[in-house]
Design a protein around this nucleic acid. Structure first.
Lengths: 233, 233
DNA sequence: CGATCAGTTGAAAACAATCAATGCCGGTGG
DNA sequence: CCACCGGCATTGATTGTTTTCAACTGATCG
């Protein structure tokens, strides 16, 4: 499929690339529409491609030997993902599932080295991206080590509102279908506990729930909770 | 201080580098002896250098706004650490403290780009290292999300035995001073809980404790616990 | 329109944190 | 050389959060 240059030109990752180089890059790319619920790649498969998310939303999950699932991260439009090969891995460490209908751009991993060579900026950006991801992971570890569940859920919801929020009358809508189970898998708890917490918040007017829906009504209030300032009666 | 080439030649990071290049690299390096309890750098300080640990053992810690501490990772001999600048950070995200008397080699961060340019292998290795670290972080997140404290402690102890174990009559000695508090900060629990767990294990003949000491007597037994196979009466 | 999936909510149980007291080891200084 | 002090560790009792178990409701989709 032929991709228009202007689609990706807007992304920070490519904004300094010449039209010429960009066209060459896109010549090798394969665009793919991923319906909700389908996966781009699965945990353990050989890493044959790396990807860019153009539109939609993906959840990257891992399953433990004993069958428990966690959500490693959420992929937002403009994010690179699945570049296991750049980290010297031969297989994908997780599964990428479309939480909403998505559009991805994929390149064969073999091309990674030549890309980087022709485009040093890409290498720097990739490095930076991984660095950010490492920091995010450490943040999560810190939160899981030191904070009780409610604060962790508050942090996750705020993060989602920031990265996937769409303004709406009455608050900020999380712009893709997300279940209590998903939030539980992001915070290391159970859907029951998440449900209880969200119900309580709804009672306080902080959020408004719904089946796979979430509307954040009061960001400052949630932030207070997240920072642990709330006098926890 | 002048460093002998043979000291670092043994490390995988440098084993394919020419003597010439290596000498040039070491010409810019500053060796430093770090007594137990002292820090190489502290959280929040501007990242002026990146380092290689030649000897000893370091704990990298982070302190949360509300004063709680966690151990992000343990640095073993041969590990690169403190290369925040490579990840586009201007300051160190954590504090590196010598758990035992240590010897470090430091380079100004400004030199990183030219190093990488003259030595592409270093870039690849660095990328790989960060990739590994990201995976470790995810492993930790997975464990904290899905496993109870005892299994997490078992995993940490096994990891320590693998990375910092010295064979000894009767078992594997963790080869640097480590307190219950440290283990608590690595597993996201309290020193009380760790103490109880280790006491129980000592009763089962799995380990042998002591003030800042740990001897692992039964690796397979601990592994069973770590994998959750143990019938948890 | 029935089946399935997401969510809610109560009750009980389990796990780990907190509170509290005490013991022990190792080093320092009298 | 001994006594004391401080940091590390142990252990019991209690509290509280979160999980687990279980039952049920309501929405959505074929």
């Amino acid at each position: 499929m032929k991709i228009d240059r202007t689609v990706v030109k807007a992304l920070p990752l490519f904004d300094r690339m010449s039209d010429e180089d960009l066209d060459k890059l896109l010549g090798h790319a394969a665009a793919r529409r991923v319906p909700q619920g389908e996966s781009v790649f699965e945990q353990g498969q050989p890493a044959v491609s790396f990807y860019l998310l153009l539109h939609g939303r993906l959840k990257v999950t891992q399953v433990t030997e004993d069958g428990q699932q966690i959500i490693v991260r959420v992929v937002h439009p403009g994010d690179l993902f699945g570049f296991a090969k750049a980290l010297q891995r031969t297989d994908y460490p997780g599964t990428a599932i479309a939480a909403a209908e998505s559009l991805t751009l994929g390149w064969p991993t073999d091309l990674w080295p030549s890309f980087v060579e022709h485009n040093p900026r890409l290498a720097v950006t990739a490095m930076q991206t991984i660095g950010q991801r490492l920091e995010e992971a450490h943040t999560r570890i810190r939160e899981m080590s030191t904070q009780e569940v409610e604060r962790r859920v508050a942090h996750v919801v705020l993060r989602l509102a920031r990265k996937a929020g769409r303004k709406e009358e009455g608050g900020i809508r999380i712009d893709f279908p997300i279940s209590r189970q998903d939030i539980a898998e992001m915070t290391g708890t159970t859907l029951h506990t998440v449900s209880r917490i969200l119900s309580a918040w709804e009672g306080l007017g902080l959020v408004e729930g719904g089946r796979q829906k979430l509307l954040v009504r009061n960001i400052p209030g949630l932030s207070e909770l997240a920072e642990g300032l709330k006098d926890h009666s």
